[in-house]
């Protein structure tokens, strides 16, 4: 039987209350959102804390998807299921629905949150790849106020983020730019599993030519970036399979996967290439339709 080591349970009723609790309890306290990454780790005794602060009552305050003409804001307590079901979000960023369809399973998606996913910072985690693709920024709050960091700064390393003790992620903000669309491609071993590799792509068109593009990869090593080399190769060109093959090769070259039970490094590198091409093709087709 897997049971976490003993801890004290506290329940926060607001963001301010959660921060006050963290300030009072110090580095031995941890937030629990959906609990679907943290509790399994605590059950395996890979993580132990003296206090858990339950932030599920903050869903009213931090469970939201707000779409405006130039920006989308999503609260940290927004659950996978809400991200999957939001038509408004799918209309501006179809990549979210593509990804959410293949993140875990419907029952896990009832609990897991955007904030928990990003803060877990598992290199195989899908929403980080989505947020990297879309150039999201993260709003981090502490007793001293708010600061905003980009995804590259947010992810310090595997399982490590810019969120320090006494701080929490409250929302992400994604810029909306004209002429764009996006898509997500993932290969998994079975339904509901973590990615062998995933690739997200966003493309912005200027008439018949590509103006800009970003690609975010998951499960190919730590610290994925938007891969600026791909934007350089694609900008100013009309979309074509040859062009996307070039982009796939750039993605593969920037991947640094390791061989594990999910696949060999060679296979994963191949997937980074192929899935990037597919995601770009689909994003471009969607952008041209719109």
């Amino acid at each position: 039987m897997q049971v976490p080591a003993p801890f004290e349970y506290e329940r926060a009723t607001s963001v301010d209350h959660a921060i006050a609790l963290m300030d009072r309890l110090g580095s031995e306290a941890r937030l629990v959102a959906g609990g679907h990454s943290l509790l399994p780790m605590m059950k395996l005794r890979l993580a132990n804390f003296e206090y858990l602060i339950d932030i599920n009552d903050l869903h009213d305050e931090l469970g939201f998807i707000r779409v405006t003409d130039d920006e989308v804001r999503i609260g940290a307590m927004t659950r996978h299921r809400e991200l999957l079901e939001s038509d408004e979000l799918a209309a501006v960023f179809p990549i979210f629905r593509d990804a959410e369809k293949v993140i875990a399973d419907p029952v896990v998606r009832n609990r897991g949150t955007l904030g928990g996913s990003l803060c877990q910072a598992d290199p195989s985690e899908d929403l980080s790849a989505v947020c990297t693709t879309l150039n999201a920024s993260c709003v981090i709050r502490s007793g001293d106020g708010e600061r905003i960091v980009g995804m590259e700064e947010f992810h310090v390393g595997p399982y490590e983020t810019a969120v320090a003790d006494g701080q929490m992620l409250t929302e992400i903000r994604i810029p909306v730019r004209a002429g764009g669309s996006s898509a997500y491609e993932k290969v998994e071993r079975r339904a509901g599993d973590w990615a062998v590799v995933s690739s997200g792509a966003a493309i912005w068109m200027d008439g018949a030519n590509i103006a800009d593009a970003r690609v975010g990869l998951a499960a190919v090593g730590p610290n994925t970036t938007g891969i600026p080399g791909i934007a350089e190769a694609l900008a100013g060109q009309p979309p074509s399979d040859e062009l996307f093959a070039q982009a796939g090769a750039i993605a593969a070259a920037s991947a640094n996967p390791s061989t594990d039970m999910r696949g060999s490094a060679e296979y994963k590198t191949h997937l980074a290439n192929e899935l990037t091409q597919r995601a770009l093709r689909r994003a471009a087709a969607r952008a041209q339709e719109a």
């Binding site: 349970y9 629990v32 509790l39 339950d54 609990r111």
Partner: peptide, 14 residues
């Protein structure tokens, strides 16, 4: 909503 009760604390259901 269906949840996996092996991954929820009893306290969270309070």
């Amino acid at each position: 909503e269906p949840v996996k009760s092996c991954t929820v604390l009893a306290a969270m259901a309070g």
